[in-house]
Design a binder for these strands. Structure first.
Length: 561
RNA sequence: UGGGGCGUCGUCAAGCGGUAAGACACAGGAUUUUGGUUCCUGCAUUCGGAGGUUCGAAUCCUCCCGCCCCAGCCA
């Protein structure tokens, strides 16, 4: 695998690692992990964490494990595990033989819990969920100790074993850490370590009826794997004292350290798992890999290069500020990657028929077109030309505004890679008044050559020969939401963009696009970057997703009048 | 309200006591058979605010203001 890590700028996490290395901590080792819960697909925010964790390992010659943090069977599944594996690999990272599951540690975690009980640091609490909440206190008031807090070690041990054995109903008992009910940090008010939950686990089946909580499982999983730097997001900052509390009691040496950074937000989309699940389950999008989704699968299907996502993650940096990164930056990274390597092609999205009156009927000729104007090594291709063509409807205007340099009555325009044509007449639908056909004449002397008289024809438009055109479906995607920060709105669905998908079923593409490989990306010149849909595109009937439009300075000019 | 965290250009983000990097966005201009690409140019006398320390402060101190996170048997 080639090095997928863009040159890493420095950040506060790298500073910490540098300092640890300088101080000789962890025996010079750097071990990180990416710990998703398999209850959904990973998204661009996870990609930031993936790039960080795997990037750190690569940079410091360390390792990064993939660990499925599957301690709550509700909602977790193998389908999600598989998608996560697929997506991280696609992003360009690999964990070799270090694929782990928190569920593989259940037995060890149970033993750790027993050890904690024996030390007098944990107890079985038999309060109801409501009673526990009630006694937790509030931001301003301390909590009250559980009446079960001082059970004997023997009783705790017995009860905990019987919890495991399935003798009690869900919620009847819980294992709690004995810390401090008056702690100002609520996380420390005797947090729950284990709960009884009769829910089949996608990996352990019905083997367990008790499951460890995140706070207990995560830090110990880190320790078991020899993680040195456990990197997570800011909302876990309050949990760090608990992380340390557990590790200090159960792990003798090489204790992992938790470091928190700000999670990513991107404008005009949502990244919270809850909201993404809702979009999928309520059918607002067509699944987790809908090209409008900010999921890795969605972005892949949309046609975003993995490299673009990596560059984006490098570009946004790592810090502790709350942030809302401009979607325009992601799009910039996508264009940047695609501009380099996407072969150019011509495709007319909204066709308008053009007849070249002075071009011989039945004649066809082929033009040599560069696959990339700046990269001759990408070669040439033949594109057929004949008397009847299709051009883009918006490349003709009956009453063109100022600075419009395309076709109009009396005007000339250059057909890309071909001739200069001149408007002759137009045909309208009698009822609607809509222009249905254009008649033009061509200047044979301008075949891939400037006009001999030196006249300037600034406009260049794309075209497809009608007789050779391949019908294609093109899907235009736009931002999923109409407001910058839909994630901050409770009724975020209200801001769904009704125009986020526009399907154009009757487009015409140049012949070479007939067999576009699913997943391959092209630049449709003057229009944007497009990618043959990996699921629905087929030879003879290609379906293209618009990855991102080309930058467009015309609409700005037009907007100014 | 108790605790934890954060405030540097429209958006990200460097800066770690020596006088505000870079990227995106935006605005001009050049080149162009993609109104694309590329290339120039401009874009924070100022770092949430007010005091203080210092020859010198975005960086240190004090107070104030604002935003985010925590009261799941979720992660």
């Amino acid at each position: 695998m080639t090095d997928p890590t863009p040159p890493a700028a420095t950040d506060f996490i790298r500073d910490i690692i540098d300092e640890d290395l300088r101080a000789g901590r962890h025996a010079g080792r750097v071990a990180t992990r990416f710990p998703p819960e398999p209850n959904g697909y990973i998204h661009i925010g996870h990609a930031k964490s993936v790039c960080l964790n795997f990037g750190l390992a690569r940079q410091y010659g360390g390792t990064c494990n993939l660990r499925l943090d599957d301690t709550d069977p509700a909602g977790e599944s193998m389908e999600f595990v598989e998608s996560i594996i697929r997506d991280i690999h696609w992003l360009g990272f690999d964990w070799e033989d270090r694929l782990f599951y928190a569920s593989d540690y259940f037995e060890k975690l149970f033993a750790f819990a027993v050890e904690l009980i024996k030390k007098g640091d944990a107890y079985v609490c038999s309060l109801s969920p409501d009673e526990i909440r009630e006694r937790r206190g509030s931001f301003t008031e301390p909590g009250r100790e559980s009446p079960y807090r001082n059970r004997s070690v023997e009783e705790n041990l017995d009860l905990f074993e019987r919890m495991r054995a399935g003798e009690f109903a869900d919620g009847a008992h819980v294992l709690r850490a004995r810390i401090d009910m008056a702690a100002p940090n609520i996380v420390l008010r005797d947090p729950i370590l284990y709960r009884i939950k009769r829910e089949p686990h996608y990996r352990t089946g019905t083997q367990w009826v008790i499951y460890p909580m995140y706070d207990f499982a995560h830090c110990l999983s880190d320790a078991l794997e020899g993680i040195t730097h456990s990197i997570c997001t800011l909302e876990f900052e309050n949990n760090r004292p608990l992380y340390d509390w557990i590790v200090e009691r159960l792990i003798a040496a090489n204790r992992p350290k938790q470091i928190e950074f700000a999670r990513l937000s991107v404008s005009y989309t949502v990244l919270s798992k809850r909201r993404l699940i809702q979009l999928v389950q309520e059918g607002h999008v067509r699944g987790w890999d809908d090209p409008r989704m900010p999921t890795v699968s969605g972005m892949r299907r949309r046609g975003f290069p993995a490299e673009a996502i990596r560059n984006f993650c490098a570009e946004i940096g790592v810090a502790k500020n709350d942030n809302l990164v401009d979607m325009a930056l992601l799009e910039h990274c996508v264009r940047d990657g695609l501009n380099e390597r996407a072969p150019r092609a011509m495709c007319v999205l909204r066709p308008l028929k053009v007849v070249i009156d002075n071009y011989p009927e039945g004649q066809t000729e082929e033009f040599d077109c560069a696959n990339h104007p700046q990269r001759p090594e990408m070669g040439m291709r033949k594109v057929p030309f004949s008397r009847v063509l299709y051009i883009e409807r918006e490349d003709f205007m009956e009453a063109p505004p100022r600075k419009y340099n395309r076709l109009g009555p009396g005007r000339e325009v250059r057909l890309r890679n071909a001739y200069i044509i001149k408007f002759a007449s137009l045909v309208k639908d009698e009822k609607t008044g809509e222009v249905t056909e254009l008649h033009c004449t061509y200047d044979p002397a301008t075949r891939n050559a400037p006009p001999a008289d030196g006249r300037k024809v600034p406009g260049v438009i794309h075209w497809v020969s009608a007789a050779h055109a391949v019908p294609a479906e093109v899907r235009l995607y736009d931002r999923l939401f109409t407001i910058e920060d839909p994630g901050s709105e409770e009724d975020f669905l209200q801001y769904l963009n009704p125009q986020s998908l526009e399907s154009l079923p009757a487009c015409y593409a140049e012949p070479g696009l007939q067999n576009a490989e699913p997943g391959s990306a092209y630049q449709f010149e003057r229009v944007g970057y497009f990618c043959a849909d990996e699921k629905e595109s087929q030879s003879g009937r290609p379906v293209f997703n618009r990855v991102v439009p080309l930058r467009d300075s015309w609409t700005k000019i037009a907007g100014k009048g």
